[in-house]
Design a protein around this nucleic acid. Structure first.
Lengths: 131, 131
DNA sequence: CGTTCTATGTATAACCG
DNA sequence: TCGGTTATACATAGAAC
């Protein structure tokens, strides 16, 4: 757009890439916010820039609410639940396979329980974390 | 935009709201996709329209990868992990408090383990589910 | 990193089948 | 409810600070 069409491919120049990312993220936030308001929808966005920086947005009071609802839109948790309980109880069942997942469960659990309220009331906000 | 400025508030007319939601979701998908490509970023978007329909997008092969990474960006899972193990072991510790979270954990677990690959290779795609 | 400015490229509200 | 069309409103690349 503007002063030249952009090629849809990764921007090699680091500086340009960051500038573009920053500008487009701002624009995206606005779009997401508008969509959530106009359509009365619940939205959650998670982005990791190339540098590993986390950016997020949620139209809910807590991003976990949307993620949680996303989870609930499915209803076959029994299998894993069973596996995990068994793993915890005897420490052997599908141990190797489960371990990797356990790591994810641990971290996800943390979010579900402790994630603080970054945005509320529907106004758009960006948050940068780690490093 | 276009042919009249839009008021930033919920569209009451159901038909108009759905049309607007649909169009803007398409536009948003494009924007998100472009951001992920240009900035070489990892993106995950989850939206629930007012009717409860799920829409999602992920620049990763699996949306869970981004969610998982989102989880890993924090590193204090020990507490909940401990609580949960104890709950499973004796069924009493902080039972009432834990129950609600267990539901979330179950469903989240399902995603982490079984979520199929809706998009891969970076191309944008929307998916509608349930109902 | 963020901002501002401006020429242009895009997205899309209102219409129309 | 859908899928085009079109006139406008908006987003943003590039440059400079």
């Amino acid at each position: 757009m503007a002063r030249g069409k952009v090629q849809m491919r990764r921007i090699e120049n680091t500086t340009s890439q960051q500038v573009t990312f920053s500008k487009r993220w701002t624009g995206l936030l606005k779009k997401v916010y508008e969509l959530s308001v106009l359509g009365n929808a619940k939205v959650a966005v998670i982005i990791f820039s190339q540098k590993g920086r986390l950016h997020e947005f949620s139209s809910n009071s807590k991003i976990r609410k949307t993620i949680d609802r996303y989870c609930r839109s499915t209803n076959d948790a029994a299998t894993y639940q069973a596996n995990m309980e068994q793993y915890i109880l005897d420490g052997t069942y599908k141990k190797v396979y489960i371990q990797t997942q356990m790591e994810a469960i641990r971290t996800m659990s943390w979010i579900l329980l402790n994630r603080r309220n970054p945005t509320d009331g529907g106004s758009a906000r960006a948050k940068s974390e780690q490093h």
